[in-house]
């Protein structure tokens, strides 16, 4: 279960404090419920994911994670460009406290990412698709209760998307996903509930279809 309690967030910009990205967002994500986030570009979807994942802290309010939550996957974040895929994988295993079975996990990640010899090349030489393959493999190597995906599969090819969607499905029995995606079918496929972000406020819908409809209506205005 994840409790988001009245969070506000704004960033510091070059001209002092920026405008509020999130203003009083509250909701509770029950266990095993997968949630899709929808909203315009710049509505604060990625910000909200970062706050849920603990990568960033809200300006006000707090987030309680009563389960194991992954880091937000997507856009090649969390990878050090000058290091190889293998070295990055080892780093992530170590910070998650898996020094003993590091070999197994790195082997699993290498096997899952399917990027061949590039696994031993620096990450900065990777294409964005290869980065998402690596990131995806990384997060699947650990048992999280909630996986956070910020368009994690957007830059993958068809084969990878298929593989990712199979992985998501196999997870659904014991884990859930919080995802941002601009693909409606992806959201409908994996998410039961939805959150529509608009003007710094979050609107919770028990059905993802309702969230998508609300988003559509707001666009027509």
């Amino acid at each position: 279960m994840i409790i988001v309690d009245n969070i506000h967030k704004r960033y510091k910009t070059n001209h002092g404090l920026g405008k509020w990205v999130l203003q009083g967002v509250s909701f509770v994500i029950p266990p095993k419920v997968s949630v899709g986030l929808v909203g315009r570009n710049g509505a604060g979807k990625s910000t909200l994911l970062r706050l849920i994942g603990g990568t960033d802290q809200p300006t006000r309010g707090h987030v309680e994670r009563l389960c194991r939550v992954s880091w937000p996957m997507g856009f090649g974040g969390g990878l050090q460009g000058s290091l190889t895929g293998r070295q990055n994988a080892k780093f992530v295993c170590r910070i998650h406290g898996h020094e003993e079975d590091i070999e197994d996990r790195v082997a699993y990640i290498e096997d899952y990412a399917e990027i061949g010899a590039a696994f031993d090349e620096p990450v900065k030489t990777y294409s964005s698709g290869m980065k998402s393959r690596l990131q995806f493999g990384l997060s699947l190597a650990f048992d999280f209760d909630v996986y956070i995906s910020d368009e994690a599969t957007a830059s993958g090819d068809a084969a990878f998307k298929q593989k990712a969607s199979a992985a998501f499905k196999s997870l659904i029995d014991r884990s859930s996903i919080i995802m941002v995606s601009h693909g409606e079918s992806t959201l409908r496929e994996f998410c039961t509930a939805g959150i529509f972000l608009d003007n710094g406020k979050a609107h919770w819908f028990d059905d993802i279809n309702d969230a998508l409809n609300a988003y559509k209506e707001s666009r027509q205005k």
Binding site: R68, Q80, L83, Q87, K90, F91, R94, I95, H96, G97, H98, E99, D101, D104, R105, Y108, L140, A141, D143, S170
Partner: peptide, 26 residues
């Protein structure tokens, strides 16, 4: 999928120590 024993969550100290170890090597 590899399964592990999560019955014993890590203490703050053990998390920090493993992060330090990983960062130093990195």
């Amino acid at each position: 999928m590899i399964n592990y024993d999560y019955a014993h969550p890590r203490t703050s100290l053990s998390i920090t120590l493993s992060v330090w170890y990983a960062l130093f090597l990195r």
